[in-house]
Amino acid sequence: LRVYARTTPDQKLDIVQAWRASGHVVAMTGDGVNDGPALRRADIGVAMGQRGTEVARQAADLVLADDNLATVVAAVEEGRRVYANVRRFLLYALAGGTAEILVMLLGPFLGMPLPLLPAQILWINLLTHGLPGVALGAEPVAPDVMRHPPRPPDESVLGAGLWPRLLAMGALVAGVTLVAGVWARETGRPWQSMMFLVLGATQLGVALGSRARPGSLANPFLLLAVATALALQAAGIYLPPLRALLGTESLPPVDLAIACALSGLGHVAMRVHRRLFPGRPPRARSAPGPAPG
C-alpha cells in the first residue's frame, strides 16, 4: 500500500496514468480545482457535489450529490449485480436455444423425422424467455460479489468460461429431451408431446438453478414466473384449444410425473455445474511502481 500526501496536480495525473498503464480501471475522487486534470484523465472521475468546485464537477464523470464515498461502493455493487444478471440470462437463454437446435438436428437420426412442430418451438420460447427471463434480471446481488477483483475491461460478456458452460447446459437439456422422446416412442407413448413438455420444463429447471441465492425467497418473482410458465406448458398438452393450436396430445398422469422428474435434472445440473465451476474471478494485477516526478 502506497500513500501519497501533498501531491501536486501533475503528480496526481502521473499516479492515474501509472495505474492505467498497469491495466487497472482507475477511479479518481476530488473536489478542488487542482483535481480537475486527474479527474478528466481517470476512467471514472468522481467529484463531490456539495463541497466540490465547479471545475471538479465539470471534469468528473460522476458527481456525488451527498458527498458520501459509500455511495460509490453501492454503485459498484449494483453494477456488478446487473452485469451478473446479464450473464445469467445469456447463459439461460442461449443454452435453451442451443438445446432446441440440437433436438431438431439430432432427432431425425434417432428415428424422429420432425421432433417438434414450429408452433411448439414458438410456444416454448414464449414461455421460457418471457416471464422467467425478465425475472432473472431481478436477481439480488451475490453475497461475495464485492470480494471479487474487477474483471478486465476488454473481457467479453460471454467470456470467463461462459461459452463452455452454455454449450454444456444446452447439450444436457437436449440429451434429456431426446432420451425422453426415444423412450416414449419405444413404449408407444405420444413422443412428440413428451419431448415438447420435457424440453420446456427442463429449461425452466435451469432457470431455477441459476438463482444467485438458492433456497431463499430473495426473488419470489422468479419462483412465480417459473410456476406460471410450467402451468402454461402443461396447459399446452391438456387444454383442447391449445392442443389443437400446438398439435399435441394428452399425456397420462404417470407420463406427466416422469416429465416433471426429468425437468428437475436441469436444476440439479445447473447447481452442480455452478459449484464445480463457480467462475473464479481473474487474478488481481500487481500495483504499479512509484509515480514519476
Rank of each mutant, 00 (worst) to 15 (best):
T71P: 11
G97R: 12
E54R: 15
A42S: 14
A47D: 02
L69F: 09
R20K: 13
A21S: 10
G79V: 03
Y92D: 02
A84L: 13
D66E: 05
T29E: 01
T98W: 12
E78H: 04
I101S: 00
A38L: 14
R41Y: 14
A42H: 01
E77R: 11
V86F: 13
D61E: 11
A74M: 07
L64W: 03
E100W: 06
A74L: 10
F89G: 02
V86P: 12
A93P: 03
A95I: 05
Q58I: 05
F89I: 15
A18W: 12
A38V: 01
V26C: 06
G49Q: 04
Y92R: 05
V72A: 05
D67L: 08
T98E: 03
L39K: 04
M104N: 14
G49Y: 12
Q58D: 14
D35Y: 07
I101C: 05
Y83E: 09
G52H: 08
A84V: 15
V46L: 04
G36E: 09
V25L: 14
I15G: 00
A75L: 09
G32C: 06
N68S: 15
W19V: 00
T71M: 11
G36V: 08
N34L: 09
A47T: 12
A95D: 04
F89R: 10
G79A: 01
T29D: 01
A65E: 15
R40W: 10
R81G: 00
L13F: 02
D67E: 05
T53W: 04
A38W: 07
V26I: 07
W19P: 01
M48W: 06
G32R: 15
A21T: 10
R80N: 06
V16P: 07
M48F: 13
L102F: 07
A99V: 08
R80A: 07
G45C: 06
Q17Y: 03
A18S: 15
M28E: 08
E77K: 11
V26P: 07
G96W: 08
D66W: 12
V73D: 05
G36L: 13
L64E: 10
D67H: 05
A21R: 15
M48E: 02
L102I: 11
V25P: 05
V86C: 15
A56M: 12
L39W: 02
V33E: 00
E78V: 00
D43T: 12
A75Q: 02
V103T: 08
G96D: 11
V46P: 13
Y92I: 02
R40D: 11
D31K: 02
G97P: 09
I101P: 10
A42I: 01
L102K: 04
A47H: 11
T71K: 09
P37G: 02
A84I: 09
V72N: 06
V46K: 01
L39C: 04
R57H: 05
G36I: 03
N85M: 12
L62W: 14
E78K: 05
V26Y: 04
E100D: 02
A47R: 07
A95W: 08
R41Q: 15
D43I: 10
A21H: 03
Y92M: 06
G23L: 14
V63F: 08
R57T: 01
A59Y: 04
A65L: 15
A99E: 03
